[in-house]
Design a protein around this nucleic acid. Structure first.
Length: 572
RNA sequence: GGGGCGGUAGUUCAGCCCGGUUAGAACGCUGGCCUGUCAAGCCAGAGGUCGCGGGUUCAAGUCCCGUCCGCCCCGCCA
């Protein structure tokens, strides 16, 4: 079928023409003497009319047997519908096909659900072929495809080169858990699937490919979430001789192109220091849509307080943090919010309603005159102040602020992008071990040889849209001395880092230009574009939370023979 | 690894707190009627290992323990 007809091409111009069209039966409306069948293919639906008048018995019998999701080919004349029968809901609603003859190409039986039915995700994944017939999934997959095309066109125009990098590569110690692949010819040794092409793209910079990009599959063996799958796609890029701003401009150029293509409303990207983001929003990925004031540290107001709860936190050196909404919450709404805060793991949430000069709150009787005065001065308008105290007050306040905005629709429409810059280079993990905030190849700001590592900033930049981290990047280290020092700070000795990264160090020592890059999470980008709760909605065949494919039942055991060839013994 | 929610007809869900005749509804399905519907309509019918295993009890969909599966959250995700 070279010249198949898709329904969206059919309009009034076809009236009087005979066509042959094939697809799936979407719905059947059997009126006895006449049967209406909506035929669906890639682009939409077309009403086909089976009129038994003047037809033989076989035609009647066969047409009555047709059921939804059968695959049919119909031949007939396109005609205008009677004016009263025009269906404005579908693009082909002005016309219909009067079926002259038809073939049933395949039947469908025992379907557990029909496309666009609302069924459990478990079923959708098991019968993904049915689920993918739905309008939404089709739209999502087409969007991914379009974005990949826009991406390739965009980078191509800018002179970037798409270079494939290996899927079978070397396991590296830092970062997420690797998926590993046994090497048959080197028993006991393993490849790793790439968590990202990070090192290869840096090697390409040392190789004189000055502008690299790739749409590339990445693998991380960590627990999944709505926004995390074990395999996902990155739009990956790297530029030689580039400064931070050069990379950010290129990245934003692509985001803008995608936004324009999908005709969405968007703001110019804001730029915010990592530290300010934490202080103002309690998170490194703030959602700028939220119409609630940023956070404010009000510890100072309560330094001599008699209010026990705050006093305890202040004496332990913990902050008291507040934020403000000009919404006048009802008492039951406030009670609900306090409940939600506790469910989120907060020890408490204090609210203070501001009406004129007076403050109403469960805590007013515990507060001093000057505390009340200071509080009411912070925000001019009437509304509600929320206060959180404790060691993680910024984080917790940020969480509640987000939750409140979600529950009460206190959000702007549209897309609010944000660059987070000047993140620290290192941080301490929960075991007190020093780790990279981004990755060990990120260039430091400051004197790495003499400064306390934890005071160093980085040349990293993360792109956050509507509270979702869409991607991140950095200017990389191109001096092997600095790179070695970073490895040392991370606790590797020379033997360890040589074993894992000698190829990188050799490349840096062989005339490697300064360079930097970025990587987008493709699925996250599409998910946020359509405001989808999970990236599973934009992946044709995603894994479940237990990292299973319900369609194919992978992973599954392999034969003894396969294991033997790989010199692997299974010990469960 | 930890916490939470869910699993009952093909599907979505009610019933479970407070154990007790024959486990319900809607949609779908099957059959019949029907020439202008577009979520077609009307009539009739079929359809259940209550996720699985164990326990308590005279009696378990309902209570208890374990387990599997799906989703959300924490950890983890350089």
């Amino acid at each position: 079928m070279i010249n198949r007809i898709f329904t969206d091409t059919i309009d009034r111009k076809f009236v009087g023409k005979e066509i042959t069209i094939s697809g799936w039966v979407d719905t059947v409306r059997d009126h006895g003497g006449v049967i209406f069948i909506d035929l669906r293919n890639m682009t939409g639906k077309l009403q086909c009319v089976f009129d038994v008048a003047g037809k033989d018995k076989e035609f009647k019998k066969l047409s009555e047997s047709i059921r939804p999701e059968w695959v049919v080919e119909v031949k007939g004349v396109i005609r205008e519908r009677p004016p009263e029968s025009v269906n404005p809901k579908i693009p082909t609603g002005e016309v219909e096909l009067l079926v002259g003859e038809f073939k049933i190409l395949n039947r469908a039986k025992n379907l557990p659900f029909y496309p666009d039915d609302s069924v459990s995700e478990e079923l959708r994944l098991k019968y993904r072929f049915l689920d993918l017939r739905s309008q939404k999934m089709r739209r999502n997959l087409l969007a991914v495809s379009r974005i990949m095309k826009i991406t390739r066109d965009y980078f191509d125009e800018l002179g970037f080169v798409e270079v494939p990098t290996p899927m079978l590569t070397k396991s590296t110690p830092e970062g997420a858990r690797d998926y590993i692949v046994p090497a048959r010819l080197k028993p006991g040794c393993f490849f790793a699937l790439p968590q990202s092409p990070q090192l290869f793209k840096q090697i390409l910079m040392a190789s004189g490919i000055e502008k690299y990009y790739q749409i590339v599959r990445c693998f991380r063996d960590e627990d999944t979430r709505g926004d995390r799958q074990p395999e996902f796609n990155q739009i990956d890029l790297e530029m030689a001789f580039a400064e931070k701003e050069d990379v950010m401009d290129v990245v934003w150029g692509l985001v803008e192109k995608v936004f324009n293509e999908f005709a969405v409303k968007f703001e110019r990207p804001a730029i915010l220091d990592f530290e300010d983001a934490i202080k103002m929003y309690g998170t490194d990925k703030p959602d700028l849509r939220i119409k609630i004031s940023p956070l404010k540290d009000i510890s100072e107001i309560f330094k001599n307080t008699g209010f026990e709860i705050f006093k305890k936190q202040i004496t332990q050196g913990n902050p008291v943090v507040c934020f403000f909404s000009n919404k006048n919450f009802s008492r039951s709404e406030l009670d609900e919010l306090v409940k939600v805060a506790k469910e989120e793991g907060l020890s408490g949430l204090l609210w203070i309603k501001k009406e004129g000069d007076s403050l109403k709150s469960p805590a007013t009787k515990f507060l001093r005159e000057e505390e009340i005065k200071a509080l009411s001065k912070i925000y001019e308008a009437e509304g509600t102040i929320f206060v959180v105290a404790g060691k993680s007050a910024f984080f917790e306040a940020g969480l509640v602020r987000e939750k409140i905005s979600q529950m009460h629709g206190l959000r702007e429409e549209g897309f609010y992008p944000l660059w987070i810059v000047n993140a620290p280079l290192f941080e301490l993990d929960k075991d007190g071990k020093i780790t990279s905030v981004h990755h060990p190849f990120t260039a430091p700001v400051g004197d790495i040889f003499n400064q306390d590592p934890l005071t160093l900033k980085s040349l990293a930049y993360d792109l956050v849209i509507n509270g979702v981290e869409i991607g991140g990047g950095s200017i990389r280290i191109h001096s092997s001395d600095i790179q070695k020092k970073v490895f040392e700070i991370l606790g590797m000795d020379e033997k360890q880092y040589s074993e894992k990264f000698s190829f990188l160090l050799r490349a840096l020592e062989s005339g490697c230009p300064p360079h930097g890059g970025f990587a987008f999470g493709l699925e996250r980008f599409v998910a946020i574009l359509f405001n989808l709760p999970s990236i599973r909605e934009v992946i044709a065949f995603p894994k479940t939370q237990n990292v299973q494919c319900l369609l194919t039942d992978a992973p599954s055991p392999v034969s003894e023979k396969q294991l033997k060839e790989l010199s692997i013994k299974v010990d469960i």
